[in-house]
Each structure stands twice: as C-alpha cells, then as structure tokens.
Amino acid sequence: MTAKHEPEPTHDPSAAAVSLGLNAAIRVCLFDMDGVLTKTATVHAAAWKQTFDNLLRRRSVRMSQPFEPFDEVKDYELCVDGKPRADGVRSFLMARGIDLPEGEPDDPLTAETVQGVGNAKNEAFNELVRTAGVQRYEGSVRYIRAARSAGLRTGVVTSSANCAAVLAAADMAELFDTTFDGNDLNTRKLPGKPAPDSYLAAARALDAEAAQAAVFDDAQAGVQAGRAGGFGRVVGVDRLGQAEALYGHGADIVVQDLDQLLVTR
C-alpha cells in the first residue's frame, strides 16, 4: 500500500464535494481501477477466457464432454469481475462444477490447480498489456483532476496485483494519494470484494471515516463492498449495460462515465 501526504485544502470542502455530485460530507474519493480508470476490464476478460478455455478444452477431451467456453460477458460479470484472482478462479470452477486442488502460489502455468490457473491468467494478462498497452477513460481523468483541484484526496482500490504497472502504463500514477491492491490484500490477509476491507483500509490511509469517502466501482462485487462498508456515496460505473444490477448491489447512483457527475453540478 502506498500513500502520499498533501496539504489540506484552503477552501470549503463541503461545497467542493457537492460540486462533484457527492454528499457534502465527502472528503475522499476511492476508485476501482479496471473498468473505472483504465480500459483493462476487457483485457482481464480476454485473459480469463484464454486461460479458462485452455483448461476447459483439455478437460472436455480427457472426459469426452462437450466444450462450453468461458463467456466474456456473463461469466466475467458473475464469477470474476472485481474479485481477487484466486477467488475468481474458485467462483468460476464452482459454477461449472469443477473441483481442483488449491495448489501452491508458485505452481506452474500448466498446473490444474486453483493457483496454477490463477498464475496462467496473470501471465496472459501481462502479455496482453505488453503487446497492446493500457488505455484510460478520459472522463475519469477529468473527474479525478476536478476532485483534486477541489481539495479532495484520491485513492485506488483494486484486487489486481498489477496496479502499479497498469497505472504507470496509463500515465495516471500521480493522480492518487494512495493505492491498495491485490498485493496488500495478500500481505494483510484481508478478504477481497465484496467484503469492504480493502476500501476501508484505503479510507483509513487517507485519514477518513467511511462516511467521509465515496466509492466508485464498475463491478457488482465492488458496489456491494461500498454498501457493506457504510461509505458516504457509492457510485456505480456502467460500462457493460448492467445499471440495474449495480443499483441492486448497492449503488446510490449509476453513471456511464465519471465526468457525467460534473455535468450535474
């Protein structure tokens, strides 16, 4: 977890929060990364598909069963979106009725274990990032810059273990006062989303109570975490046409891009 300390704003923070489409009590904005800040949700989905399809093909041949591929929309949303890598593996395998041993963190990419499958997915993701790069959502960049200009502090909360590399590739690292990622989850032995622990840890790092912080997430598990943590504002970001599901899991408001919140001032 990384944190930076900046001087306190000299203007009225309540008016600033309202101008950003937030509650007057909000002092901190906490953003999920993939799908909110960067266009890496589709990269993750592609990496999951490559990994799971390889596993499913091998099993279909070995067991003489039909091959049912990973669905990059339905399976991604329901099983892996917003979750720590190993939790996503377990969730999808459970949905398919597949029982694999847990394995060890350093299992090879070909190992048919939870950890081996997770390692294969991480390698596939990193290769896609290396070959295609990372794009960012410019509406999110505009919103974050407006929030920082208004004196609010900002943080990234992601289950990804590749947070630093992705933010650097997207030229966004300097926009945030703190980050909390999958490495921090493992180090602190905390549960990932939909549990609120990662968001709560980031809020504490910025000297804020949950009621003083807003959560911005595009995953159902993420908005559920924001609601469970008692955060002052839970903003769902609808990139996949799942506004109803985001509301159902705890979002106070759903937008298609963050700069829409600026338009409503």
Results as ranks from 00 to 15, higher is better:
T2I: 13
T2M: 11
D12H: 06
S14V: 05
S19Q: 11
V36E: 03
T38V: 10
T40A: 09
A45H: 05
T51V: 06
F52P: 09
S60Q: 04
F67Q: 06
F67R: 11
E68S: 13
E72C: 03
V73S: 08
C79F: 14
D87Y: 02
G88F: 03
R90A: 14
A95F: 15
R96L: 10
L100E: 02
D106M: 05
T113S: 11
Q115C: 13
V117R: 07
K121D: 09
N122D: 13
A124D: 03
T131P: 01
T131C: 04
V134G: 04
Y137R: 04
A146W: 09
A147R: 11
S149W: 01
A150Q: 05
L152Y: 09
R153Y: 04
T154E: 03
T158E: 09
A164K: 10
A170Y: 02
A170M: 03
E174D: 15
E174L: 09
E174C: 03
F176K: 02
N183E: 14
K193A: 08
L200Y: 00
A201P: 02
A202L: 03
A202K: 05
A208Q: 08
E209A: 15
Q212C: 04
D218I: 00
G226F: 06
G226P: 02
R233N: 08
V234E: 03
G236N: 03
L240C: 12
L240V: 07
A243V: 03
A245P: 02
Y247C: 01
H249I: 01
Q256A: 11
L261K: 07
